[in-house]
Design a protein around this nucleic acid. Sequence first.
DNA 1: TTGTACGCGTTATCAT
DNA 2: ATGATAACGCGTACAA
Lengths: 349, 349
Amino acid sequence: MNRDAPPPTRPTIADVARAAGVHASTVSRAMDPAARHRISDAVALRVTEAAAALGYRPSALAAGLRSGRSRTVGVLVPDLTNPVFPPIVEAIEQSLAARGYVTLLANTAGDVERERLIVERMAAQGADGLILASAARGGPAVALAARLGLPLVLVNRRLPPGEDGSAISFGSDDAAGLRAAVAHLVALGHRRIAHLGGPAGTATAADRLQGFREGLAAAGLVLDAAPLAQASAYSRAAGRVAMQALLATGGFTAITTANDLLAMGAYDALEEAGIAVPGGMSVTGFNDMPLMDRVAPPLTTVRIQHATMGRLAAEALLGRLCGTEEPAESVRLVPQLVVRASTAAYASP
Amino acid sequence: MNRDAPPPTRPTIADVARAAGVHASTVSRAMDPAARHRISDAVALRVTEAAAALGYRPSALAAGLRSGRSRTVGVLVPDLTNPVFPPIVEAIEQSLAARGYVTLLANTAGDVERERLIVERMAAQGADGLILASAARGGPAVALAARLGLPLVLVNRRLPPGEDGSAISFGSDDAAGLRAAVAHLVALGHRRIAHLGGPAGTATAADRLQGFREGLAAAGLVLDAAPLAQASAYSRAAGRVAMQALLATGGFTAITTANDLLAMGAYDALEEAGIAVPGGMSVTGFNDMPLMDRVAPPLTTVRIQHATMGRLAAEALLGRLCGTEEPAESVRLVPQLVVRASTAAYASP
DNA sequence: TTGTACGCGTTATCAT
DNA sequence: ATGATAACGCGTACAA
């Protein structure tokens, strides 16, 4: 009741056309940077001013319906509260927004059914493409997107060898990261090294375990002797449980984990067991999440380039959508070992 | 080249109508749960089967264009890498998805111009409503959304007294949280307490400072003597800088901070200054982010209900969009002090 | 209970 | 360089 009733209806292209004394098509051309060359500067100016005066904003819905491109990209994440993903999503959103695209976000919660539903909903929304940060291998998203004709890009997740080869991926060389972690522990004198792996069905877990094995082999250590555990999820709670199981058998002086959250869970279990880090056990993580330098003890971990991954994925997808650029290739960024205080030289008992 | 060319064009409502031998409007009715009562069960079944056989998914674009509701909600966040926001956003997305809504995510990066652009873009996208987690007060979003007729809900941010009173907000009782922190420090024997505040122009910073003052007053302490600093952002780096400034003058044995990230920055500065926590300085945070129990020393902080806030905000907005439910009221959840090891009894020098 | 007709706001195409 | 026209896919009065 401030003034009279404000018009709740947004001005349309027809209103602008009327105000500028031109046809709607001309307005459309004047608003499209790619087509503004096709009309006279005088008319373009008149239209632009009329549009500004009316506060005209083209309806993306209508434009999308007509053009078939909604300038919208869906981003699928398994769990936004896992600190790995926010920097990735933020970089994606930024890159997308810079080119006028809107980001559709959805949590799959690692649920296959939800994943299917989300992909379908995004397709129904007219999303032009998908970025999949969902780690779950074997999820229906890749195949479904292909079937729906939705361009798809993977981030923080390797291209599954068996599945559709047209999916580009942007991730880290996970195996290299774990080889570096193992080499570091070996250099410190550790010989009996365990691995706390990620959940089954994730490419990252497989690759990191593979890197662990390669690292042991490179050091001439016995693979069969290495204690292994597999966490049920990339979470602190799951890491604690897996570490407890590992400790029950024992026989190792250092452990590599597939993920910083798992490492935090390992800290929990070690604390409960009265084992000091790194005095009684050296621990390494993966990802270098924020605050890993402030936990007790500061975690030796493998730093990956979250933001770069996100940016590259977004740009690759945009390139594919515009079709102007040559198709991008998958990239595996090189991670970097960050040595802190959770690892120490092996002290013989 | 697996088989022959798969039809890249999705089936439309007309295809389903043809396949089921009915008119398109009948299909529309059959797909709409609210209108299915108006057609015979036999026809509804035939239509449903035809739709399933063709893999028909209604175009949300076309439906939105026609109906004016896109089943889309925009979520604005200042900085997704601030650990406060992921749980909020996740809860929002979940609540929205449960009711068939899609989440549009955007980072404002605390930039007023970006904020304006994003709101306009979401309006252009046909978003049915907005959820603003952006902390910046005085940003154009609230007014702009009102002008565009976009329902808006605030989360983790109090209703600004001066601005449009129609905006509902879901946050914490920030002042109460800080009062509790101060009371805790006073009970430990501290008398000279400082406050490391949040950035200017955020409601949370103002409310928490206010709570700090109320806490001092309640304890009968002198307000004027309390050292105050204002961080330039809710970030660890900004917290470190502000703490350095505070330490330069000194004269306090405990400090409350407006945010856990700021507390982490304070840790950094204290470490550099060679001051032990809590031996030489007691520190409290705000938010109880993940891992605050694992940093060194574990942080005494104020826990807020991120997920509940997000869920309530989403449900309030949905209620307003559907119009069926009575308009929700703003809620201020009660935070809870979590005492850990960053605070200790005052030890006279 | 079902069909008809129309319009949502835009852009592509053709014509001028 | 600009105007006219049709169509994108759907929902909804209204008629039957």
